[in-house]
Design a protein around this nucleic acid. Sequence first.
DNA 1: CGGTACCGTTAGTGTCACTAACGTTCTCGG
DNA 2: CCGAGAACGTTAGTGACACTAACGGTACCG
Lengths: 160, 160
Amino acid sequence: MIRDEAADLPDGGAPKTPDRLRRRASRLLSQLTVRSDRLITEGLARADARKWHYAVLASLQEFGPGSQAELSRRSGIYRSDMVGVLNELTERDLVERAPDPDDRRRNIITISAQGRRRLRRLDKVLDDLHDELLAPLSPAERDQLVRLLIRLLDHHTQSS
Amino acid sequence: MIRDEAADLPDGGAPKTPDRLRRRASRLLSQLTVRSDRLITEGLARADARKWHYAVLASLQEFGPGSQAELSRRSGIYRSDMVGVLNELTERDLVERAPDPDDRRRNIITISAQGRRRLRRLDKVLDDLHDELLAPLSPAERDQLVRLLIRLLDHHTQSS
DNA sequence: CGGTACCGTTAGTGTCACTAACGTTCTCGG
DNA sequence: CCGAGAACGTTAGTGACACTAACGGTACCG
């Protein structure tokens, strides 16, 4: 008889996480991020996409075409990883990769019409997923959370 | 001349992250968690410790001795990874690992006096690190952040 | 007694952020 | 003009992490 997918940490009975742990912001962040990442990754996978597809498409839409290195800087994806992401995006015709005639080191990446459609679709998908992620919070609380996170992130990125 | 440690995404000039990305809670969480994890991991490394050492010691201190599987459930560390963590903790004499006479499948793990000292030390280290992590926020805001995160995490763990 | 479940342990997977090194191409100071 | 250094795209690899699979051994329950 097929068992129910193992589940090694099933959170059954009395989990009893120590309070010291429960209150540490660092732990809350990493635990929650694991869940959040899984939620988003799975949701995007259902739409045949990955987080980085969205990041690149969004960057192209908002700031126009650019070289791979430039996209890398805009989106926070390392240029070594950008290669594969762009391979996937060109495969799907969401993006066009053409050599820059003015600088033969560069490729110029352009979003396609289909890419723009896809971006709109992914925006909807992500809206829904965030609704699920932030379900327990009121709109005001969601806003507050986002503002707090932005302040923290800004603080730790400018001074890196 | 020796260059300044590469730094492949140096955030130089005009990074221009697309707004779509900047506002997504999922992205904020994962970006911030990368920074937070690095901060904590490096800080603990300076004290010859790792996050999991703290988690296990805290769990032992608050709920008393237990089997490896039980510690695993309390701390969220998989029991396959618990083995290595306990090896490190016993090496450092912070913890004692003894077979359970009443159930020969189990090991009973007990915190040592030295382990309790270490836990107090790590608590201080983590306090300082969290001060750094949450530096831009007022005490009230830190509290609010923690409360929001707890609510989200609880929501996504009970219904897992 | 026999099946099922739990124990500790070993090994392995996939993802992610990140580094190193390459050959090529551009830039710029001397 | 040319030569050093930097930026580009690309390939390969690292280490940490969450998680799965399978094992031999042990306990529990009908």
